[in-house]
């Protein structure tokens, strides 16, 4: 493999809900081994884009490939962290069991997880600082801890590409720190991570490159080149409230 195939390649993709287009003609090739922020206003189709890339939504047009092949052939290379609110946490199970679900794909039909799988799940929990909560009923976890369990579940998959749907929303500082730590580790392992993100303050800190999205792809590329006020205004229009400079000063003193 001398010619580099991009981890994620999106060719002219459109997605529609109830015949109403949500994403139009997105074309994008991702860099490898980077942490990519998917940024855009509410309803801009950020989650839709990663769901479409994962084959969870039918495409109205275009093609998605993972390392040059369709997603259906590359599932083992892809890990997914859905939004926390997408499941009912009052389900009769514990944190370890949820993380074990990340290994179901490798286990295949009918095979039950064995102790080696449990060890791997525990290791994933350790990476997010949750190993002491392995046996805890999932409804007894705080929102941030639930988010970390979802993250651990994806880590257990040991994928090459990760898609994370708003992992930073509504989490405590400890969880935010744990997620950032995981992102760093994944990057060191040359894995590619896509993160749907809301908080413009932290974009330059967390992401090597960004995709600015508002129904279409506004701009994409390295954060320091693309994450500019001009591009942000193109993405957010009037909704972008420029923060006064002293806000940043306030945030850094502690």
């Amino acid at each position: 493999m001398t010619t580099k195939t991009p981890p994620l390649s999106i060719e002219n993709v459109s997605v529609a809900y109830h015949r109403k287009p949500v994403l139009r003609n997105i074309t994008y090739q991702s860099p490898e081994g980077e942490c990519v922020g998917i940024i855009g206003p509410n309803g801009a189709g950020k989650s839709t884009l990663i769901k479409a890339a994962l084959g969870l939504l039918p495409l109205a047009g275009g093609e998605v490939s993972i390392y040059g092949k369709p997603y259906s052939q590359q599932r083992k290379l892809v890990g997914y962290v859905p939004q926390r609110e997408s499941v009912d946490w009052d389900f009769p199970t514990n944190a370890l069991d949820v993380v074990l679900m990340g290994l179901y794909g490798q286990l295949g039909w009918f095979r039950r997880p064995k102790s080696e799988h449990k060890d791997r799940a525990l290791e994933a929990l350790r990476k997010v600082g949750m190993e002491s909560f392995a046996k805890r009923q999932i409804s007894q976890l705080s929102g941030g801890q639930q988010q970390r369990v979802f993250l651990a579940r994806a880590l257990a998959q040991e994928a090459q590409i990760y898609f994370m749907d708003e992992p930073f929303v509504g989490v405590d500082a400890a969880t935010e720190k744990a997620i950032v730590q995981v992102l760093h580790e994944l990057k060191e392992q040359k894995k590619t991570v896509f993160v749907v993100h809301h908080d413009l303050q932290t974009v330059s800190e967390y992401f090597d490159s960004v995709m600015l999205l508002n129904l279409r792809l506004i701009a994409s590329g390295p954060t320091n080149e693309i994450f500019t006020t001009e591009n942000l205004q193109k993405t957010y229009g009037g909704r972008l409230a420029i923060l006064p400079p002293q806000t940043n000063d306030l945030l850094s003193t502690q």
Partner: peptide, 22 residues
């Protein structure tokens, strides 16, 4: 009981199961 694991996945997080290829 044979499909216990798969049914559990279906009941807890069907979308994630789909992303795993089930």
């Amino acid at each position: 009981s044979l499909f216990f694991k798969e049914l559990k996945l279906l009941c807890f997080d069907a979308n994630y199961g789909k992303s795993l290829g089930f």
